[in-house]
Design a protein around this nucleic acid. Structure first.
Lengths: 204, 204, 204, 204
DNA sequence: TATGAATGAGTTTTCATTCAT
DNA sequence: CATGAATGAAAACTCATTCAT
């Protein structure tokens, strides 16, 4: 049993903590609002530690973006991999949304990412690639869902996937202006609407 | 016959040009990215001219937001006021969207507004108020549309309005990452999907 | 009876009002704090009127300084010119001080003048010349006073004059920090102390 | 034997140099005239260095004020603590004044402080507190002096202290306008005059 | 003469980044 | 590897001054 962390482990821990702080801060105060100082300090380190671990503020943002999108893709892929009946799938989609919803920060972070992507070529490329993978995975999920339901999707699954993703981001952006915090389940409801699937009775 | 612009006219022109530059820049490089210097210069004036026309950067942003939302509301209200049959209404909605789409900047500007609103109380209040007016007008339009179609809306019209607005913002945010510029008519298609209305044949 | 002011009169009025506003503002918020805009506006004019009447902010300050010092000198000269007994003279000194004291602004204005004079050659020259005239007049007054009292001044009358003037400025500068507004009569008391003259019984 | 300055030492040196530059500049060109840029540059640092050592310009000003007043109080307190005969005490007061006089800047700095205090609540509070402490110490000194001389002070010692302080400030403010640099010993002479103590023969 | 729109240099302050320790 | 002092470019905003009306 090692008492102390090895060099590598210690470095990893620093990185991890910095990433966590950065994610929170980017979401809460935006890319510009989250100063390197703030990120480092709120992770319990100094600016120097930040620059020992990341080349620049842009780089950590990109890394975060990558990780975030990969996680979403992974979660969807897992849903896809399972062989479960439609209602079950629906309920899982719903709960997965609930998870993302609870972790409210990511909605804004996502918007922040996309906004930066609209303005910065580096970001744009990275984002576009990830987005497409994400979209395709989700399109697969949509296809599977409709297959299970034994119905035809109301539109090209890729388009549906794009719409769902846009809707998710748009709603969390709008959240504050609507009626206080996003009504729980509202996002799911909206998605089902897009897909033309009636909410299962007993819900909401 | 006036030889030159009067004082008033000249001042108005300055204001207008500054507002135009600001709108473009906010959309292209974001609120933080659009420095007062940049705005003024790109309108062909000095920083001083900016400050002799607007109290602060926040104020011009808010003014822009207000104008933008009001224009949207106005356009919707005009659609509402007309007494035309459903297919006509649909086609008008579609073309009005096209207009907004051409003026692509405003999608991002809207996202920028909402992002600021999530982080700034002043912005939040102003935005929330305008948003609600806008939403209600749109809800009215939705109601009318379904009345015309002699069908029941698939959900509370206010919720539908919120969803449509979120979708619009979300899609323009996502635009660049999807497949280059937003496919023409895609936003309309998405909206009709949400409303559960089949695209009229001959479209797309 | 002229209904309207002639050109000259009207110009003079503008000048006068601007000078009055400037005097007040310089005293209240300092040389730097009193912007041309503020001065003009508080006199009921525009910046343009200011620059039609004064070459620059420095110039109006200098003019004010000149006028202020001349007024003080004039007042002292009048005291000197009278041929009245000592107690009367003392009481007049006292009341003249009271006047200046009531017009509290001038204490600070004086300090402001001197501070500028310490830092600006233009100001310094103008101020030094005026100061010396002022000082000499006051020295004459002191001499006369002691002659009346049939006593020898405790020091060179010019030095006494310098001391009295320094004391006056110093006290009004210190005023706020001492015990709220300068106790009435305190300045006179201090001056008599310097001169080695007992306050007349019944005073204070 | 350290080769180089440690971090702490280096930081302290920066602070010190900045404070010195600031003191000089505030005295020479005033609070408004001494820009942070100027202060930093004249200390041989960048603006950034200034802000990594002081929160704001106001703060360094206040810190300077505090240090200055404390030093004066301390010097007086030491005079008070000694148990020496009156003539000795007088001569020490005189020489302590000489010291202060050599460090001519502080007279103007003091005036600057008081002027700011007249216009800024933050400054006013800080200044008033320090002033009172200073005044009381000086009042103690005056009382002691008169006890030694076996005479009654010509007025309330606190008032005398106030007058002495006002005189000091007033004279250094007037200095330039009088007869070039303040005649050596003039301030002491003035103070003794206020106290009604004959200058010891052999002086002047 | 008076107006007030526009200028542009100057102010305070912030922050990503570097580098000696 | 981590620290944090220092840098310097850039931001928002102010204001004396100019000049066409």
């Amino acid at each position: 049993m090692k008492q102390r962390l090895t060099r590598q482990e210690s470095r990893l821990e620093t990185r991890t903590r910095l990433l966590e702080s950065a994610a929170q801060l980017f979401a809460r105060v935006g890319y510009e609002g989250a100063s390197v100082d703030l990120i480092a300090e709120s992770a319990g380190y100094s600016k120097g530690a930040f620059y020992s671990n990341f080349e620049s503020k842009e780089v950590i943002f990109l890394e975060l973006l990558d990780a975030h999108k990969r996680r979403e893709i992974e979660a969807l892929a897992q849903l896809l991999a399972q062989d479960i009946p439609a209602p079950e799938l629906l309920s899982q989609i719903r709960s997965s949304e609930t998870i993302r919803g609870s972790d409210f920060d990511f909605g804004l972070l996502s918007a922040e990412f996309q906004l930066q992507a609209c303005r910065d070529k580096t970001f744009a490329k990275t984002y576009a690639k990830l987005h497409r993978t994400h979209r395709d995975t989700m399109a697969g999920l949509v296809t599977k869902l409709f297959a299970k339901l034994d119905r035809k999707p109301p539109s090209d699954p890729k388009d549906l996937a794009d719409i769902i993703m846009a809707l998710t981001t748009g709603l969390s952006l709008q959240g504050t202006s609507m009626q206080g915090p996003l009504r729980k389940g509202f996002v799911t409801e909206a998605i089902l609407l897009v897909l033309g699937i009636e909410p299962i009775e007993g819900d909401r």
